[in-house]
């Protein structure tokens, strides 16, 4: 196996370095990638088309919104697949887990729990900020969602999984993840029923009292919220099943 690996690595490396001699110079503004119509359009006209100052958010949620929808679907798939792979069925499910030898039985540490108690609201607030402010600063639904999910994971780490599951049970988490997809695809479908193409947010201006540009602006916030729903819940669901070997009980 090692010899095979070395051979593969040498071949791949040779190819990559061969290509690297032909690359555009580092940071060259004239390089085809930076100078093409497409990227110039994104930089020059994002403000005109969508009024969103953060081009990355605009390209992510609007110009290439279809990619992002499937990115959300990928996350959703990961959540469903992990739960399904690790889920115990039938006889195995009722078996009580053997205790690990390094498992400690005492109560969660006081300092840890108090710090977490202080931190979690701040983290969640920051997650909302990242989500809502994604149009003008780095961030957006995905980053906000991960941070939000991390706050639940933090609760599970500091106390144990059941405590976190009191707040967000895994079953409900998966339902909410589906809701996130529904929000995203639903906005796309709504645009379609209003006469545009799938995900053509500008068409939403026919039912909401805003201009076509602002329709895009607000619809982007809508789909980011959908993304955040899915990501938050799936991140927590993945942690919950990975940390408990699919039993969804006990701590790490």
């Amino acid at each position: 196996m090692r010899k095979l690996a070395v051979a593969v690595v040498v071949l791949t490396g040779g190819l990559l370095l061969y290509a690297a001699t032909d690359f555009a110079a580092w940071g060259d503004p004239e390089s085809p990638a930076s100078d093409s119509d497409v990227s110039k359009h994104f930089i020059a006209e994002t403000g005109v088309d969508t009024e969103v100052p953060n081009m990355v958010t605009a390209v992510l949620a609007d110009y290439r919104g279809f990619d992002t929808m499937f990115e959300t679907v990928v996350i959703f798939i990961a959540g469903i697949a992990i739960l399904a792979i690790l889920k115990l069925t039938g006889k195995d499910a009722t078996k009580t887990p053997g205790k690990r030898k390094d498992e400690v039985d005492d109560a969660p540490d006081l300092i840890v729990t108090h710090t977490v108690r202080l931190l979690v609201p701040i983290i969640q607030l920051f997650a909302f900020y990242v989500l809502a402010h994604g149009h003008v600063s780095p961030g957006g639904g995905f980053q906000g969602g991960v941070i939000m999910g991390a706050s639940f994971i933090l609760v599970a780490l500091a106390w144990d999984l059941p405590r976190a599951m009191d707040r967000l049970s895994v079953d409900r988490a998966i339902l909410l993840a589906g809701v996130g997809i529904l929000i995203y695809a639903g906005i796309g479908l709504l645009a379609m029923f209003l006469g545009g193409e799938f995900l053509d947010y500008a068409e939403l201006s026919t039912i909401f009292p805003v201009s076509r540009e602002m329709a895009r602006y607000h619809a982007m916030l809508g789909v980011e919220i959908g993304v955040a729903f899915t990501v938050t819940t799936v991140m927590f669901a993945i942690y919950a099943s990975l940390s408990s070997k699919g039993r969804l009980e006990g701590g790490l």
Partner: peptide, 18 residues
């Protein structure tokens, strides 16, 4: 051709949308 997001070819360069 079906342009997702309504980034039609007559008003926008090809490849802006999907």
């Amino acid at each position: 051709s079906y342009l997702l997001g309504g980034w039609t070819l007559d008003s926008y360069p090809r490849g802006v949308g999907i």
